[in-house]
């Protein structure tokens, strides 16, 4: 075959592709590093100087700092809650002889498939009018957002944990139960240690989904529980010319995703296809 020449063609093709992938992201860094004056001269591909003022401005804004804290609290809270509950639910669904468990499995995934835009209105109405105790309503609270994000993250957790739990032999639980351990002890001492890698992947991926979410955060929060992604859109609409700030906020939003990317790169495709593809 043409084995002498082809590799370099492939390398060229994939280098070009990598350039196409990376250049838009690089361009965002370039814009975030430019002073406003430089931006309106001709676009310049190279970084001539490092100007950190956009980043400083973002970090010094108390509003944006608040948004960052909200984003951190909401996505961490949601990831922990969803991984814990998803683990218990998935354990129940894979081990116990529950009637209609395949239907329950499928039903959970329909929650994930539903477009969030459809849920804007009903969730807004329910949070303002129905789910409230006295004067306390879940609208515009961190706990409210943590619970709302369960709709799409909990099914994801259940589905990504399923292969992990299926892979742990049932004989292990049965042996432990015969030895007189309680059902809780079995989960805590036998299953949990073995499921740890799967749990870590689930925790990280659900965290990043919650961190990345925009639509529900934009409609179900007003001020106190706004997240960084909504802050980004606020900057675009109110001061349409603050490109540098916008790029800097984008970079701040991107950094955690990049960290996550380096941690669980091999699992991303499997996760995004609900285990239909073993990456």
């Amino acid at each position: 075959m043409r084995s002498r020449k082809t590799p370099w063609l492939s390398v060229a093709l994939w280098s070009l592709l990598s350039f196409v992938t990376l250049f838009p992201i690089y361009w965002m860094f370039v814009i975030s590093m430019k002073a406003p004056v430089e931006l309106f001269s001709t676009p310049d591909i190279l970084l001539r100087s490092l100007d950190w003022s956009n980043y400083v401005e973002v970090l010094e804004s108390p509003t944006l700092r608040g948004y960052m804290v909200n984003s951190l609290v909401i996505s961490s809270g949601n990831a922990v809650l969803v991984t814990a509950l998803g683990f218990l639910a998935c354990y129940a669904l894979t081990r116990y002889d529950l009637p209609g468990k395949e239907s329950i499995f499928f039903w959970t995934i329909t929650n994930r498939m539903a477009p969030p835009a459809v849920f804007l209105l009903p969730l807004f109405l329910l949070l303002t009018q129905v789910y409230r105790i006295g004067d306390f309503s879940l609208l515009d609270t961190r706990i409210g957002m943590i619970l709302v994000y369960c709709t799409f993250n909990l099914p994801f957790a259940i589905w990504t944990l399923r292969p992990t739990l299926d892979a742990i032999p049932k004989e292990l639980d049965e042996a432990a139960l015969v030895d007189g351990a309680s059902a809780w002890r079995v989960i805590w001492d036998v299953i949990l240690p073995l499921a740890r890698p799967g749990l870590a992947v689930t925790l990280i991926l659900t965290w990043v989904f919650a961190w990345n979410e925009y639509l529900l955060a934009a409609t179900l929060t007003n001020f106190t529980a706004r997240t960084l992604t909504t802050g980004l859109s606020e900057y675009v609409t109110t001061t349409g010319t603050a490109w540098g700030i916008m790029a800097a906020i984008s970079v701040f939003t991107l950094i955690p995703a990049l960290i996550v990317f380096s941690l669980v790169q091999r699992h991303i495709v499997t996760g995004l296809t609900f285990g239909a593809v073993k990456g």
């Binding site: 990376l22 984008s250 939003t253 990317f261 995004l272």
Partner: peptide
């Protein structure tokens, strides 16, 4: 090539 998959849609 995997990189864009993890990026927030809004980013």
């Amino acid at each position: 090539h995997t990189l864009p998959l993890i990026m927030a849609p809004i980013i």
